[in-house]
Nucleic acid binder design. Structure first.
Lengths: 207, 207
DNA sequence: TCGTTTTTGGAGTGTCAACTCCAAAATGAT
DNA sequence: ATCATTTTGGAGTTGACACTCCAAAAACGA
């Protein structure tokens, strides 16, 4: 028996990888639009164009699929904010980053919220493994923000009183909180104001 | 036919009110712990000690019950933050308010998140009426914060450059975003830092 | 080329959850 | 006390959904 020792390590041919990818893509899209519980595996099958046996061949159950979606959405969020995210080391870059996020909301009519945040609200208390994956996703998101602020301080653009750890976390929280309110009110103002306020605070440390 | 013209206006005896109340209480508790989709109406029946016909006598369907829960949770949140919320007109009061919220999270092991925020993430895109009720709930929450800040400015505790509308919204977003991260990381730090950061910004306007 | 493993097809299966229905008891107005 | 109205009981009904099963086709390794 070489059944999955735990979960990892499986052969998976190129074709298999492609099928698996289609499934995760379809699931990610549907779960972003309708939520996890609003998305049936049958919906995913239809959208991905695969049969039930295929889906359950690549994922043990729906929870495993959801975890794959979480990792996928983390990658998507980080990729979409590149290259901005990797060079958040100036006030211009910070404001450009803010603008992009507000603009994205405007474009999608403030629907959907944060791909990670909404999953977090739905899953954090229900699925411990999903919670851990989501926490890891937020960590990966927070890190480049922190790195940019640290670079600004090291370069002298921010005073030594500025705490990059605190500011990065506050910025991430502003994104999440702003999005919850923006999604609920169908108005991008909350996200804009939340980010502007924390950014204004960062400005108070300008050297 | 005097069927509900739309929704409102029904006799409802004292006994009926009590039963209805027990149903909403049970539903609110379960939906806070397990989410809306993780809570079946059968679960609610069992917890409230009522039969199916009773539940459907007071609520047309599950969505109507959910909307009642939203209004209930709004009341609970506002009541729980009283009397602090109605006198957020000093730095001491603002910090006490912050402390209470962080302490609540610590007590419940950072589980559950915000009673309104998690409902918002789950329902905002699915149920337009629920979304409207949630938006109204956030409005009711934001208003006393704004009023407190405005009072501080009018009294001269804050400079005239301070914008109570902006600051109140930023504080509410800090609560929401901090809670999303705190719930996901099982660590109250995110909420504490998010609130502290915006409060520090408010301090820069101290007169 | 041949045997093995991976990938795919698609018809089930069993459970659970939302909602219905028909009356019976309790309650309230007069 | 009487009758209409509200409240309650609890057994259905209907559909959806997560997941299974038995093979067949395709891809792979030697």
């Amino acid at each position: 028996m070489k059944e999955a020792v735990k979960d990892r390590a499986r052969p998976l041919t190129p074709k298999g990888m492609a099928t698996r990818g289609r499934i995760v893509d379809a699931a990610a899209e549907l779960m972003f639009e309708r939520g996890v519980s609003g998305t049936s595996v049958e919906d995913v099958q239809a959208k991905a164009g695969v049969s039930a046996s295929q889906l359950y061949h690549y994922f043990g159950d729906k929870r495993a699929l959801v975890r794959a979606v979480i990792r996928r959405q983390t990658d998507v969020v980080l990729e979409r904010q590149q290259p901005l995210l990797s060079h958040l080391d100036s006030f211009e870059a910070l404001h450009a980053w803010r603008d992009v996020q507000v603009e994205v909301q405007r474009q999608r009519a403030c629907a959907g919220g944060c791909p990670l945040g909404t999953l977090a609200a739905e899953l954090a208390d229900e699925d411990p493994e999903a919670r851990a994956d989501l926490a890891a996703g937020f960590d990966r998101w927070e890190e480049p923000i922190r790195a940019g602020l640290r670079a600004m301080r090291d370069r002298g653009a921010l005073s030594l009183e500025a705490d990059p750890d605190q500011l990065a976390l506050a910025l991430l929280a502003a994104v999440q909180g702003g999005l919850v309110l923006t999604q609920t009110r169908r108005n991008p103002r909350a996200l804009a104001v939340a980010l502007d306020t924390v950014l204004a605070y960062v400005h108070t440390f300008a050297a």
